[in-house]
């Protein structure tokens, strides 16, 4: 298993109050799965995402990523895991405004510990090619449409060919046409063998994944293949059909 989570808990302390964001989650995700994580606000889906993305460490429980125990890693090791094995896509794209598309895509390479100078540029170009933006290399974010911005962000996320691509509400700021484009792109990357986790509250986006994990009050509420998950359910969202 690529991801093995056992009895994972996270407790935040806000003043004297303790908030149990996750209460004993067990989860296995295999290589090349495409999983949607759903749940209402406060269900713990963002916290789970942060744990899975090695942005945060659990209060208790274990998280093995490719057999390595993430819970026992220091800040520097976590940073290197994020750099090499994780790719993040965010709702609001998070592109650096004064840098070109190519520079934005190449950002993770700045923090990589290896790799030759000439190949960096080539790799960034390749990643832009993969998302179909090879003609936008020198454009800055304000010269790109929302969909193009998210493609640049996806190119940045897949640059290092990570084990896991994590998308946090990737289509939240996009209209239905663009949402479909981005979902197509995800499907294409998935077809190339990429493991993809998408946090979303849109049922139609979840419907494009293979498996849907629903969280409630910090616990896994349901974990079903997509066909079973949407069976008998009204699929809301923007009306996207993949």
């Amino acid at each position: 298993m690529l991801i093995e989570i056992r009895n994972l808990s996270k407790v935040y302390r806000v003043g004297v109050e303790e908030i149990h964001a996750l209460r004993g989650v067990d989860l296995d995700i295999g290589s090349n799965e495409m999983v949607a994580i759903m749940g209402s606000s406060g269900s713990g889906k963002s916290t789970l995402m942060n744990m899975l993305g090695c942005l945060d460490t659990p209060t208790s429980g274990t998280y093995h990523l490719g057999g390595r125990n993430v819970g026992q890693m220091g800040a520097r090791e976590l940073a290197s895991i994020r750099n090499e094995q994780m790719g993040f896509v965010f709702q609001s794209f998070e592109l650096l405004p004064r840098q070109t598309a190519l520079q934005n895509v190449g950002l993770p390479l700045i923090y990589a510990s290896s790799g030759g100078g000439g190949s960096r540029r080539r790799r960034a170009k390749e990643a832009l090619d993969r998302v179909g933006l090879s003609d936008r290399t020198t454009h800055r974010p304000n010269q790109l449409s929302g969909g193009q911005k998210q493609r640049v962000a996806i190119a940045r996320a897949i640059l290092n060919r990570p084990q896991i691509l994590m998308a946090d509400e990737p289509t939240g700021n996009l209209d239905s046409t663009t949402t479909l484009e981005i979902l197509d792109l995800f499907a294409q990357i998935h077809a190339e063998g990429q493991t993809i986790l998408i946090v979303t509250h849109e049922d139609d986006v979840a419907a494009c994944c293979q498996r849907v994990i629903r969280l409630r009050d910090g616990r896994v509420d349901s974990d079903l293949p997509v066909a079973e998950d949407i069976a008998g359910r009204h699929v809301g969202g923007k009306g996207v059909r993949c």
Partner: peptide, 16 residues
């Protein structure tokens, strides 16, 4: 702050 968050997400260490 957001830029710093992003840089950390893509693998910047605190030292960087």
């Amino acid at each position: 702050t957001r830029e710093i968050g992003l840089r950390k997400a893509v693998g910047a260490t605190p030292t960087a």
